Simulated scan of single mutants.
Amino acid sequence: MTMNDRRSTPGPIPNISGRDEPRYGSRERKEELAKGFLGEGAGYDEVRPGYPNGVLDAMLAAVGTAAYPRVVDLGAGTGKLALALAGRGCHVTALDTSESMLEVARSKALAGQVAQRFETRVAPAEATGLETQSADIVTAAQAWHWFETGAVSAEVRRILAPGGVLALVWNTLDVSVPWVHRYSRIAHAGDVQREGFLPDVGEGLELVTRHVEHWEDERSTWDFVRLATTRSYYLTASAKTRAKVLDNLDWYLHEHLGHAPGSRIAMPYRTDLFLYRPA
């Protein structure tokens, strides 16, 4: 049965969460969830959103004296942020532990004619293997909470050049909108950060700027069903649990909210950017 043929019988829908950030229960559970992304690539790239121009502008303004900033993107995935910065003239090194994700990024770099400013490296964020002071901007988009905070913070301080910045970015569903909050719970999305959220960073990094943008991503309803399949919860779940998540989203978008299957809708997002400098 294809997703478009699905006739849903919704299972229990989770209540609204009071969490401010992802919680994993244990280090082992965190590692299990992270491994769920290792074999993902094209599907992730097709339905995950990009980043608004205002966020890119704020990053580049922080190192305005660098004509062609050197960017190291940690946990780069399929290159959503890294390729956008390469398109702005930056020289980007994208790091990830998933070869399949980086393969998608390399293909997109070739298609977008930015390959001459874009390279990839399979490496963990905590041990990049890059030269000391080799980056003007270190970025982590949707990824910082997966790293070991102390080790990655020390590595960032090592590879940042004088005057450089660490840019931590999160696209999150705008759960201040009631229907989106309900969607996020059904999809078991981790996108539930609240207004007072601050990333956990190690010693020696000082927050200098916080920038927030509200925007919308327009896609088909089936794309927003598929979006759940890129979440760590879904990727590590049983077949029964996966089917229940998709059934519940089908029911919620098409029956409860009344959208025609396949019609285009706008999903409200917020993007939070945190800029740090070595203290």
Rank of each mutant, 00 (worst) to 15 (best):
P12Y: 02
W251I: 01
L227D: 03
A125R: 01
F274W: 15
A141P: 04
V71Q: 03
A123H: 06
L249V: 08
L246T: 12
G204L: 03
T93Y: 05
H188D: 04
Y269T: 00
V55D: 00
L95S: 07
T132R: 12
P10I: 05
S8N: 09
E195F: 08
L235W: 09
H214S: 11
A115R: 13
R182H: 10
E119S: 11
G41Y: 10
N15M: 06
E40Y: 01
V104L: 13
R219F: 03
V71H: 08
D200N: 04
L85C: 02
R226P: 00
H254Y: 11
V55G: 04
M101I: 03
S8W: 11
T128V: 10
Y252R: 05
T236M: 02
L166Q: 09
A84F: 01
R270T: 01
S26P: 05
T271K: 04
V165F: 10
W179L: 01
T172M: 12
T209Y: 04
A76Q: 10
A140W: 04
A266S: 15
P162D: 14
V72F: 07
F147Q: 03
A187T: 12
W222S: 13
M101R: 10
Y276M: 10
Y183A: 08
Y233G: 04
G112K: 06
V245L: 09
Q193E: 12
T128G: 09
G190C: 05
P278W: 00
E213Y: 01
L249W: 11
V180H: 03
E213G: 00
A228C: 00
A42Y: 10
P268I: 13
A260D: 05
V208R: 13
V63Q: 07
A279Q: 13
A111I: 01
S107Y: 04
F274T: 02
S220W: 05
R158A: 10
Y252M: 00
T97E: 12
Q193V: 02
V114P: 03
I159C: 01
N53I: 11
K30P: 00
L130M: 12
I16Q: 04
S176E: 14
R6S: 05
L33A: 14
T241I: 14
Y51Q: 03
E32L: 12
S100N: 13
T229C: 07
E216C: 09
R182C: 09
